[in-house]
Design a protein around this nucleic acid. Structure first.
Lengths: 256, 256
DNA sequence: CGCAGTCTTGAGACAGATCAACTCACGTGG
DNA sequence: CCACGTGAGTTGATCTGTCTCAAGACTGCG
């Protein structure tokens, strides 16, 4: 990583970069928005523009925090020995602050990367320096902590799904979670565009693309959703999907 | 939650309780060990003794942070509609600080509980007040944040396992993770006692107890481990297990 | 010693992976 | 604007790992 002079010529397309930083500042807890701590963080942040499909260059030395100012991304873990298999750990959208552990060759699965699902604008921070500065304002530190506890909570629930749920249940759960995050919809019907491919969905749920496709077809035939083109999707009844996602009917005794 | 007078008569068995609080204080970042913030936290913490099998009473109002001063515990999520199925989200051991979200009846899977695997001594804190006080000392707040990021990282890796791995791989991974946490062993051979039942293992890995049992038998027959009684286990070659855990051979193409 | 609960082992069923065509969406260039 | 090609998505046939159901054996405790 080349060091960069702190001139007004911030790397990356200037207009977008400034917008990215501005979005980040606006997301800070209101009290801190014009405090020196906020200034410090804004100076520390490196704006980065990623085109669709591009991957944020891994950093071998520092854990990083990445703020997504615009667009959507996936956090992936390359796992392939032979074939390049990218397990998808999480999808992230505008406004998320993502923790990206540093690339650790030795540890198994110690390689996490953030890849853009569409053109997006990010702001990257080295985690330790971010926290050094954030320590200056407990409000900021605390809000980061809250975010990370939320992420932990989401990850745990996700894990719960993964462990015991049938393919339909996973897909249904994925869909309502996307409806929530992309269309801010928790019941009734809604339409939105999925920014990720079937392959991404499969790799995030532990299913093959064939299974993803089949389950979507079944849900369509059951009248629970409609599709248009590759990405546009319309959920007819979010609550019904939630019911499907919640119960762990099939192949899930696991009593004891 | 009843307010409790800050007299020396702390609720719970007194000697153990004091030891619990002392262990917690000792775990705080060294600089803060005798600062007023540490005092505040120690007064806030409620020592609790749990006998083997007991569950920490759920709190409907507050998220909680629970410090495990002694013993080992599992974080579970009751999922059953009909049968009481307890998905195991994580195992925690001495020195861990566990985030336990408050009991939320409406949310699916919004019911997390901490259950003791053996007699153990804990210190519970209401999360918000803990953070209020911890804000007084950025070092403390930051170390909590670091812990939570670690937990997130572990949970993500765990999710990675869950999604795509065969039964053998999950068991192997579970075993080396236990060797690491219980016997501080990362290669070679080591022996320890598993504090949890086959059922707990199964529920944490998304497998049935029968499958857990079968895989352990296979590993034993392959000479990779020895067992004695219900809980004692001896891993002959941790690295070999790690290799098994790492690769995702069977029924796991998921290419794309 | 005997009981209750945990663990092990076996036989068969089924969800989802795999392999293999085939179709369709969407961007490119004529 | 339409023909074309590539990569994404769909659909079908088969295979296999793990769940399920059903005994039986062992551990540890009263």
């Amino acid at each position: 990583m080349a060091t960069i002079s702190p001139t007004p010529q911030i790397p990356g397309a200037s207009a977008e970069a400034i917008a990215g930083i501005a979005a980040f500042r606006a997301a800070l807890p209101s009290g801190a928005a014009d405090a020196p701590t906020a200034d410090g963080l804004c100076v520390l942040g490196r704006p980065k523009h990623l085109a669709k499909g591009q991957t944020l260059a891994p950093d071998p030395d520092n854990d990083r925090l990445v703020y997504i100012a615009q667009g959507s991304a996936k956090l992936i873990a390359p796992m392939g020995r032979g074939a390049p298999i990218n397990q998808v750990l999480a999808f992230h959208f505008e406004g998320d602050l993502v923790s990206v552990p540093h690339h650790n060759v030795s540890a198994p699965g110690g390689d996490f990367r953030l890849a853009a699902l569409c053109d997006c604008q990010m702001v990257t921070f080295p985690a330790d320096r971010f926290l050094d500065i954030a320590q200056g304002d407990p409000m900021v530190l605390r809000s980061v902590l809250t975010l990370s506890l939320q992420a932990l909570h989401r990850s745990r629930i996700r894990m719960m799904q993964m462990g015991h749920k049938s393919a339909v249940a996973r897909i249904a759960d994925f869909l309502i979670s996307m409806a929530d995050q992309l269309a801010d919809c928790r019941s009734g019907s809604c339409a939105f565009a999925l920014p990720m491919t079937r392959s991404d969905i499969g790799h995030s749920l532990g299913l093959t693309i064939e299974t993803v496709s089949r389950q979507l077809t079944e849900l369509r035939e059951a009248g629970l959703l409609q599709t248009e083109g590759r990405s546009k999707i319309c959920l007819v009844d979010v609550s019904a999907l939630a019911r499907l996602a919640g119960r762990l009917d099939c192949q899930s005794r696991l009593t004891g």
